[in-house]
Design a protein around this nucleic acid. Structure first.
Lengths: 244, 244
DNA sequence: CGGACGTTTTGTTGCCGGCCGAAGTGTCCG
DNA sequence: CGGACACTTCGGCCGGCAACAAAACGTCCG
């Protein structure tokens, strides 16, 4: 445990807390952990270590910091230590920060990177809901059909509730805002988050509308998904075909 | 200039940039600088140094980092080096991060601190617009009068435009979004930012509706302001009287 | 011109923190 | 029971960075 004396110097209130929070993300390895965890899943310590290219012992230390700092929560099962983001707020915070990284700070190094980047921009999960071009298009279409209302903040209409029910989706409002606007990384426009966004995303996975590309956050629309999105929300073809 | 080799290790894309950005705020002194600059004004290097309690030479180094990192912009006048936040986006980023600092991370140390905190929660500037209870109340009232529309994102209605014109406010939409929702620190609800929010705030200062408390970001509603806000927006008394 | 002042550079010091390997603990499974 | 595996703790190495003082630079003003 650090000293935490807080009397070393005359420092304006809040600065220490802000620096501490930022400090959690101010390391390449920890940042890589958090970005990986943005997929909303629980990772084991070794998975993260391999992903970031550090020794398991190093990962342990970092995970302790992130858990102590409240960004991550852990769940132990047998000899495994599963860890995931503390919640949607944390995910949104990291996405916001990522969106603020000046472009060109990490120049594109290869074709593979560029291609992956394009896939992410097209459709990806943002913690537990959908983002990218696809996520924004869904949100726009739901607004157009009157399923979402933007009066004084975002809300789900009665028509929207019954539409979801027709799909077999029931949003559990237990301890979470029903809908939430989440500013997009690339589109710079709001898309649907919150409990409904999460339920919709889950349903899309379970119904086989979308599938993950590899192990990352990028997703692809399946043939069944193309039919469903066209039929349900009249999404244009551009957002249904994979980015190329 | 640092090495910037970026080939030291196999690191997932984006992590380096995120860590670099967070690293700018991961220092007590730099964090104190940014929090001070949240008042939207330009500070000189020595002012910031004294405010944070460090030597001028130390401040110089930090300011270089923040300018190079794009968070701050500088403007030199004679022997002075004025520095301010790069823009509204930067301010919003810092506010967002501040809002995410776990409460209790910096325990209340004195009565004076607690009182200042309450004043901030009641009414303050958020870079160039109004936040806190007052800012949220204004936004709500403007929505109630039909000056703001929340259809698919926030927008200013025609009625809102003419209302502003009646006050002598003309929002210059040059190179900036007209209205923007900005999540509040304490209220956890959106309030009015963007060019309109800035213009409104400026007008409130110039018309003597509000005045700064001391040198910080906290503001107080004047007697003239109470009349104006009651007459124009029918704000309730609770938000017009100073927090106590 | 010369002193005052704001800022910057340079050099130095000390500490913090990330990294690893090796050894230890606990869990699973044959 | 013993080996494989996931994780943790410990010690040591190393680099980076924040801090200061001192001196140099530039601007302003009497």
């Amino acid at each position: 445990m650090a000293t935490m004396s807080s009397f070393d110097r005359q420092v304006p209130e809040g600065a220490t807390g802000l620096a501490a929070l930022a400090g959690l993300l101010a390391d390449r390895t920890r940042a890589a952990f958090c970005l990986a965890l943005l997929d909303g899943r629980a990772w084991t310590a070794t998975e993260l270590a391999r992903h970031a290219g550090v020794a398991p012992s190093t990962a342990t230390g970092h995970l302790h910091q992130l858990v102590d700092g409240g960004l991550l929560v852990e769940e132990r099962q047998g000899r495994h230590r599963y860890v995931r983001l503390a919640g949607p707020d944390t995910a949104e915070l990291i996405e916001t920060l990522t969106a603020a990284v000046p472009v060109g700070a990490a120049p594109v190094r290869s074709l593979a990177v560029a291609s992956r980047r394009r896939a992410l921009a097209h459709a990806r999960t943002c913690y537990d809901h959908l983002a990218g071009t696809l996520g924004v298009a869904i949100t726009d279409a739901m607004t157009g059909y009157g399923y979402l209302a933007w009066e004084r903040g975002l809300s789900l209409t009665d028509r929207g509730t019954s539409w979801l029910a027709g799909l077999g989706i029931e949003a559990e409002c237990a301890r979470r805002v029903l809908v939430r606007s989440c500013l997009d990384w690339t589109e710079r426009r709001p898309h649907l988050g919150g409990a409904v966004g999460a339920a919709l995303c889950r349903h899309a996975f379970e119904a086989g509308w979308i599938g993950r590309i590899g192990t990352g956050r990028a997703v692809a629309v399946t043939a069944a998904g193309q039919r469903a999105f066209r039929e349900q929300l009249a999404l244009p073809d551009e957002v249904l075909t994979p980015a190329r």
